[in-house]
Design a protein around this nucleic acid. Sequence first.
RNA 1: GCCGAAGUGGCGGAAUUGGUAGACGCGCUGGAUUCAAAAUCCAGUGGUAGCAAUACCGUGUGGGUUCGAUUCCCACCUUCGGUACCA
Length: 952
Amino acid sequence: MKYNFREIEKKWQTYWAKNQTFKAENSSDKPKYYVLDMFPYPSGAGLHVGHPLGYIASDIYARYKRHKGFNVLHPMGYDSFGLPAEQYAIQTGQHPAITTATNIKRYREQLDQLGFSFDWSREVRTSDPKYYKWTQWIFIQLFNSWYNKRSDKAESITSLMAVFEKEGNINIQAACDEDTPVFSSEEWKGLSASEQQQLLLKYRLTYLADAEVNWCSALGTVLANDEIVNGVSERGGHPVIRKKMTQWMMRITAYAQRLLEDLDNIDWPQPLKDAQTNWIGRSEGASVTFNVIPSKDVEALEATGDVATSRTSVSHKIEVFTTRPDTIFGASFMTLAPEHELVDKITAPEQKAAVEAYVEATTKRSERDRLADVKTISGVFTGAYAEHPFTKARIPVWIGDYVLAGYGTGAVMSVPCGDQRDYDFAKHFNIPIPNIFEGVDISEEAFADKGNTIIANSDFLNGLDYPQATRKVIAALEEIGQGKGKINYRLRDAVFSRQRYWGEPFPVYYDSQGMPQMLPEACLPLELPEVEKYLPTETGEPPLGNASHWAWNTETFEVVANTSVDYATVFPLELNTMPGWAGSSQYFNRYMDPGNEAAIFSPEAINYWQDVDLYIGGSEHATGHLLYSRFWQKFMYDRGWAPKKEYAKKLINQGMITGMSAFVYKDQDKNVLYSKSLTVGKEVIPLHADVTLVNSSDELDIAGFKTFRPEFQDAEFVLEEGKYVVGREIEKMSKSKYNVVNPDQICEDYGADSLRLYEMFLGPLEQSKPWNTAGITGVHSFLKKLWKLYRSVDDSTPTPEHLKTLHKTIKKVEEDIENFSFNTSVSTFMICVNELTAQKCTSKAVLEPLAILVSPYAPHIAEALWEGLGHTESIAYEPFPQFEEQYLVESTKEYPISFNGKMRFTLELPLDMDKAGIEAAVLAHDRTAKYLEGRTPKKVIVVPGKIVNIVG
RNA sequence: GCCGAAGUGGCGGAAUUGGUAGACGCGCUGGAUUCAAAAUCCAGUGGUAGCAAUACCGUGUGGGUUCGAUUCCCACCUUCGGUACCA
């Protein structure tokens, strides 16, 4: 009987669905194991062969764990809010929900045909009100929480209010806004309700703030830093500018230190941890306050030369952050960011025009321009001076765009001898460069090596190295009240508002004072309303401003809010929606109890499943989803809802499968296309050709190409050796590059099992690799051979050779799966089948366990073979075979040999060989003999199966 | 610039703690089968020299450690990711 993969795969997919073979229960005698994939955004283009790579790997592991006796949770869902569906709605008017539903249906068909063992009964969709009810719920919890730095966790806002009542905020240590004033219990009580709310906003974990945001006018929305690539939007590549807007923010910075520290406790790829570490960007140093000398005093100072007079009339303070407080005596100027709030206040009248012109020029420059020419040094003197905290010398205050408003305090003390940017700036504007390092030449460049520093010309720091000087100067600064040790993070609070339609609505309304209020939980979900059009309103409101009717639980709201007025007008609702990462930040926990309508998940469910054991997905989410979700998890942990600080023990980044694009070369001026090697010395424009029009020897189907691109109907094709040869280049798989290979066609031609095996066979899971369909015949013919092997199975006793082949395979496959080296186990299967075929093995005792081994990789054929062996149940839960060493050493035994603890090699020796024989064999070993020449070993120590020590 | 990953046949890639480099697959060559093709099966396939046995050279480059290095150390080159004036 022929290997009819179409029939087999269809049959077993139906069987699994019908019998709910992979449904996971929330309790079991078996140990639990949770295998998670990053759920996809269902795009209109459907899946290409690159998408399932991680899903195949996780499916193999999930199936393997079932064979190993675990209760496996392996869910799948859709991250179904997002921009493309909305853009499509703007263009066509079709509601994003319809687009999304259609796309999901298509995704589901494609996923189903690959034979994944997902528990579909737990599917979630982030755009489903039943799901986003809980996204809104988390938002409310964040709003009702503050971060207590003493207990180092998030706590309920009511505990903070209780403290305010009692003693104000004098003893509170919290993650809060920089500008939070100090107040007493009396002052607090004296405030109006909305003034109190205003203050509380400074503490809440999600808060409303005027933030400098990345505004993309083409998309009509703000973007997070990780949604911007090279200064343009990740989606669409539109320009992005800085703009101040009132936005919902997430106080992720409260968790900066814990997000950093806990990286040590999770088994995630080092490059990904490094990316998060850099993104959080912890730097240790000091904050130092410089007093600005009022400009009227400056002239007096110059006249008298009396530095001390300025002490009495200090007005403004400049706070800076520095990682090198030890170099404070080398500070010869200060630089403020052009956006710094003091710029207006301290600029001297005679410099006003120049400063204003400079500020104007910088704000006009787009982020992109600023990035493009980082090498140009620019800046302007403010005419103001600050006073050195120790020497009391006057230091000129400059502004320069190399100082960023968004980092630290937006101001630096410039130490040209110790920092290259300060050095370049000083050189450019002829500012003195005092040298404060012992025995270092700074005539050409700054000296920034803090490991080799001995401080000089620095008063009480002379002769100290970096750590000593740092400690001493911080102590001195604290003493005079002009600074302290400080840890600064690059991580910013996350902007959480998007001016889009297709996202989660905020469960927020604004009261008569304009203060944000959370909807009562009973009103959730606040459903996304219907709108006439998906663009901003005429008044510039986000698309939700077009909504006339909001679908929310009005009755409940009336009861809870105790009002029966027409709140839709009295209480305006928040019109922004949440960003893409909102829905994906707790989905892994929702899978544990997806149908729960009373809670995001039950305590029983999360206490049973705890956390994800294995998470597989792309590394592109390193500083987005994978950071935000860790943040929310820690919040859920702090508030007692989740039992684990980290939600994923182990994470693997699967590599990208790239496409092999094909190019034709058009003459720049004429309608002539040159074959690849004829382009030398010609001005040609490379154009993408559809890869399906190119055969395996890179020859273009010219007739097909003319149909594909009719504008070349009459073009002249210049051939080489009678062929038009295309150029090849490896690029990301994308519709626009015409290099997409579709899994449907491959399933049709070779079957899902072949595709699964081949995707694994392509190379190491974590490596990116180009797709090349040609090689699939290899794994496909392996499956055919496997099928053939099971044609005549009998109860014959396996020979030692059969058993050796089998157990060798068991051992290798198990090791490979545990190490995620799926590519090499496919090779192992091929070797196994070739050997068993050559050995004419028909023994059920060998073929039965082999079917189980193959089952995680090629589940359909494994089920069919299993059935052929006379079983009536699915193979999915059969115990994984155990290998036995004895079968591997049937005829010979391998002795790894260690010589003087140094020399090591492996000898294959007969099992019954005695010591003398082994010694002789060791001496006969040619490489050993070479070394042993002239040195007679006294004895050979044999530890069976382990080590042979030759003592010379 | 900084951080990270990786360089092995014509191609994708194997190689346990340092121990016969190139497993397995693709491709290619030759053969069997066939009227012919597809499919299948068998043999060969890193380079150079040689009829051959065999010899020499070979894991990005140059050094080093070692009886022995794809593997460990140092320097450099290249490619790919991430990040970018972070004080």
